[in-house]
Amino acid sequence: MNTICMNSTGDYAKNRLMNILISDRIGCTPEIINELKNSISKTLNNYLDIEPSGIDIQINERVLLAAVPISNVYIKREKEECDSNGNGREEVQTD
C-alpha cells in the first residue's frame, strides 16, 4: 500500500505481510482496503490537513486502528516559532 521504495527485501516482505494479514483478518482484498484508506483520508481531509501517504491502518479481530499524521499542527507551531523570533514573514492569525 505504501508507495515508498523499500531498500531491503526484508522490509518489503514485512510490508507485504502486514497488508496480507489485514485483508485476511477482515476477509477482504487489498484493493478494498486501499479504497477504505482513500475514503478515510478523503473524509478527514475535509476537516484536517493530513498526510495521506502516512496513514497506517491496523485491524485486529475486533478493532480498527488508524494512525493519521496531521500536517498543519507542525505548520501552526512553526508559524508561532517564527513569530516569537521576530522574523516571521507571514501574519499570524489572531482570534
Partner: peptide
C-alpha cells in the same frame, strides 16, 4: 535494525 519509515512523516508544506 532498518528504519525505512523514518522519514515518512515529513511536513507536507514545510
Amino acid at each position: 535494525k532498518h528504519r525505512p519509515f523514518a522519514n515518512l512523516f515529513r511536513r507536507k508544506h514545510a
